[in-house]
């Protein structure tokens, strides 16, 4: 039971990171129709930018994160949208998928050249101490991850549901045409969504990288988890992507302990196939009509 609790909490902690990346992925898809196959690489890039700031300025993780935020928002939000997405969206989403696949490889190989092929240590949010809560061993870092991502998720929910801009963005995500009719500046909202995605990948990158160390190839795993969480949960609702993230985090952890470490990543993949087979709109998504 203690072990179950321990696995559950660390699973929720990891899952909360997946949830952040999944929400960004889902928002981009819904708002701009852009499937970002470079989402994992975005997390990798954000973590390297934070790491670079830590080394250059000699600051801690959190200040570095705050300095990195506008840089990432500019590069992976504004520049990504203006330079790559805007010209291609007119040509259809197929071109964009290919372009993001290309961008993913570009970023991965680019950072292999810049940072080398060896993993670099990435500082944790808080120093390592382990708490014993009713027999379950929980590290301070897991608690910090959980607190941090819950704050971000709460802020995100507040922003999307309670602020004017947030509601406009949500409206654009739900139905672009109606949003435009209602007088919402759709293009601006799409730009904001890209910026928001950049914020989410920065937070997710900062929280997950200590576990894996900063490495150019990290994006491959991160990206897969992000889109699996989004689809399993239901990408057309922010709620769905969030729950999908937590679900995959917890299942992944349980699988590794109770069944097999070698096949830990197999479960999310199977879950993905099962969801697409039986409930394609996702476990918590809204049913959609089929488009040709």
């Amino acid at each position: 039971m203690e072990i179950f609790l321990q696995l559950l909490i660390s699973g929720i902690a990891t899952g909360s990171i997946y949830a952040l990346a999944a929400v960004g992925f889902a928002l981009l898809w819904q708002t701009a129709g852009a499937i970002n196959f470079a989402q994992g690489e975005f997390m990798m890039v954000a973590s390297f930018i934070i790491l670079g700031i830590i080394h250059l300025l000699g600051v801690g993780v959190l200040p570095a994160f705050i300095i990195a935020l506008p840089i990432v928002m500019f590069l992976l939000g504004f520049v990504f949208k203006r330079v790559l997405v805007d010209p291609l969206l007119k040509a259809g989403d197929f071109s964009l998928v290919i372009a993001t696949v290309g961008l993913g490889i570009f970023l991965r190989e680019g950072f292999r050249l810049i940072a080398g092929a060896f993993p670099l240590p990435f500082p944790k949010l808080v120093p390592d101490t382990v708490f014993n809560i009713g027999g379950a061993l929980i590290s301070a870092n897991e608690i910090a991850i959980l607190v941090m991502s819950l704050i971000v998720i709460a802020a995100l929910q507040w922003f999307l549901n309670r602020t004017f801009i947030g509601r406009c963005m949500e409206a654009t995500a739900q139905n672009t045409d109606v949003a435009r009719i209602l007088g919402i500046d759709v293009d601006r909202m799409i730009l904001y969504t890209f910026m928001l995605n950049a914020v989410l990948v920065t937070v997710a990158g900062m929280l997950i990288t200590p576990t894996y160390s900063a490495k150019f190839s990290n994006g491959e795993i991160f990206g897969q988890v992000a889109f699996m969480a989004a689809i399993v949960g239901g990408f057309n609702q922010v709620r769905g992507a969030l729950i999908g993230g937590f679900l995959i985090g917890v299942l992944d952890n349980m699988m590794a302990f109770y069944i097999s470490t070698q096949y830990r990543t197999a479960l999310p993949l199977l879950l993905l196939i099962i969801v697409i087979l039986f409930k394609p709109e996702g476990l918590f998504g809204r049913r959609e009509e089929r488009r040709i």
Binding site: I35, Q224, F227, I231, L272, I276, P280, R290, R291
Partner: peptide, 19 residues
Amino acid sequence: VRSHYLSFVTLGFNGLIML
């Protein structure tokens, strides 16, 4: 289902085969 689901399923499938 939808237009891009094949890409997701096949991406997952490739991972599964590697495992």
